[in-house]
């Protein structure tokens, strides 16, 4: 064995050759966005799939309908995103088998996803995950997760490549941050947005992100959850 790199004798090799290691991760771009309303929730994402400067596909939708009026997206390294969603779907099937087809609540789905993500704490799924649905009272619910399973219920959340471009816009337009009444100087009171207002916000957010981020564009997929169920809309985005 000639490749000794360290031993108890201090004067032997101390320099280690540079190692070229396989990198198991990549970034496939794209951005997602979830907003909760009073009696609805939306989850949207662009359909561009990239590697570096290459556009792999212009139409690779990533918002998934899980059944039980739940939608989910895991944005970032798409192989991990796909794997996470598939393992969630499998868990959900067993949940139905074991609980007489009981509908999974968003809060329970969120806790399950935390465990799926934290289970890979030391080899994480490299994704920003968002789920959307309606809670027990019928109110819109958005849960968002970091790659290792920390999660929180929120009114809105952007994830993925252009999250940092969209999130401040959402803070201002959904949660009315930095909005004051000029006459009284009082902060604007929080109110629920209507569905058409939310859809306009989502479309504006994505057209803007498409302008400023090279990994965002091609097509916008929006899934809308209401008490009638889940429906889907597509809008074109710039393809440059």
């Amino acid at each position: 064995m000639s490749n000794t790199i360290a031993s108890e004798y201090g004067h032997t090799d101390t320099s280690v050759p540079i190692e070229h290691r396989f990198n198991p991760y990549s970034d496939n771009g794209g951005t997602i966005l979830g907003i909760a309303g009073e009696d609805f929730a939306v989850l949207a994402g662009d359909t561009r799939h990239t590697s570096g400067y290459s556009i792999n596909s212009r139409f690779q939708p990533k918002i998934m309908d899980l059944g039980d009026d739940l939608v989910m997206s895991a944005n970032g390294f798409s192989a991990d995103g796909d794997a996470l969603i598939r393992s969630f779907q499998q868990q959900l099937t067993w949940y139905h088998f074991n609980n007489q087809n009981k509908k999974l609540r968003p809060s329970s789905a969120a806790r399950l996803i935390q465990h799926l993500l934290y289970g890979h704490r030391f080899f994480p799924y490299y994704v920003h995950t968002i789920i959307a649905g309606l809670d027990e009272e019928g109110k819109g619910a958005i849960y968002s997760f970091d790659p290792v399973g920390s999660y929180e219920r929120e009114q809105c959340r952007a994830g993925g490549a252009a999250a940092s471009l969209i999130m401040p816009f959402l803070d201002n337009q959904v949660n009315f941050k930095n909005q004051y009444d000029p006459a009284t100087g009082q902060a604007r009171l929080k109110t629920y947005l209507k569905l058409d207002e939310v859809l306009n916000l989502v479309r504006d957010a994505f057209t803007s992100a498409t302008e400023r981020h090279i990994e965002v564009g091609d097509c916008l997929q929006i899934k809308i959850i209401t008490k009638e169920g889940v429906r889907e809309e597509f809008y074109p985005l710039k393809r440059d």
Partner: peptide, 18 residues
């Protein structure tokens, strides 16, 4: 090789992608 998967009307690997 990473398990990344996608679909498109045109596909190419390696140099072909460019």
């Amino acid at each position: 090789l990473l398990g990344v998967q996608f679909s498109s009307p045109t596909l190419a690997t390696g140099f072909g992608a460019h």
